[in-house]
Amino acid sequence: EEWMVEKALMVRTGLGARQIESYRQGAWIEGVHFKRVSPSGESTLRGTTWYNYPEINKFIR
């Protein structure tokens, strides 16, 4: 699984929702560690946020 939603990321990493938000707003790079995608497939600020687990795992190492 490369891309996953927040709940799956929480299960895989043990991070809480606030921790994920903090990383997203600070250290993680949009387009690398996470992306927002609307149902139409376009990038957007209001779409579902998807997280790239392999890239996040590399960051944590």
Results as ranks from 00 to 15, higher is better:
E1L: 07
E1V: 09
E1Q: 09
E1H: 08
E2N: 09
E2G: 08
W3M: 01
W3S: 00
M4N: 01
V5M: 15
E6G: 06
E6W: 05
E6N: 03
E6R: 09
E6D: 06
K7V: 10
K7Y: 13
A8P: 04
L9I: 07
L9H: 01
L9D: 00
L9E: 01
M10L: 05
M10F: 04
M10A: 07
M10N: 03
V11P: 03
V11T: 09
V11E: 15
R12A: 14
R12Q: 07
T13P: 01
T13G: 02
G14F: 03
G14I: 02
G14E: 04
G14K: 05
L15Y: 04
L15K: 01
L15F: 05
G16W: 06
G16M: 09
G16T: 15
G16Q: 13
A17R: 13
A17M: 10
A17I: 12
A17H: 13
R18C: 13
R18I: 11
R18M: 11
I20N: 01
E21R: 11
S22D: 12
Y23P: 00
Y23T: 01
R24N: 03
R24F: 05
R24P: 01
R24Q: 08
R24C: 13
Q25H: 10
G26N: 14
G26M: 10
G26A: 08
G26S: 14
G26T: 15
A27W: 09
A27Y: 11
A27V: 11
A27N: 08
W28R: 00
W28N: 00
I29K: 08
I29E: 07
I29A: 06
E30L: 06
G31H: 05
V32Y: 05
V32I: 13
V32E: 03
V32W: 05
H33I: 02
H33N: 00
H33Y: 02
K35A: 06
K35W: 05
K35F: 06
R36P: 05
R36D: 11
R36T: 15
V37S: 09
V37F: 08
V37M: 11
S38H: 12
S38V: 14
S38T: 11
S38Q: 12
P39K: 06
P39F: 10
P39T: 13
S40T: 12
G41R: 06
G41S: 10
S43P: 12
S43Q: 10
S43C: 08
S43W: 05
L45S: 13
L45Y: 07
L45V: 12
R46Y: 14
R46E: 15
G47V: 14
G47Q: 11
G47A: 13
T48V: 14
T48K: 07
W50L: 15
Y51M: 01
N52P: 01
N52C: 06
N52L: 03
Y53Q: 03
Y53R: 02
P54G: 07
P54H: 11
P54W: 09
E55A: 10
E55Q: 07
I56N: 00
I56H: 00
I56C: 04
I56Y: 01
N57M: 15
N57E: 15
N57H: 13
K58M: 07
F59M: 06
I60N: 03
I60V: 06
R61P: 04
R61Y: 10
R61Q: 15
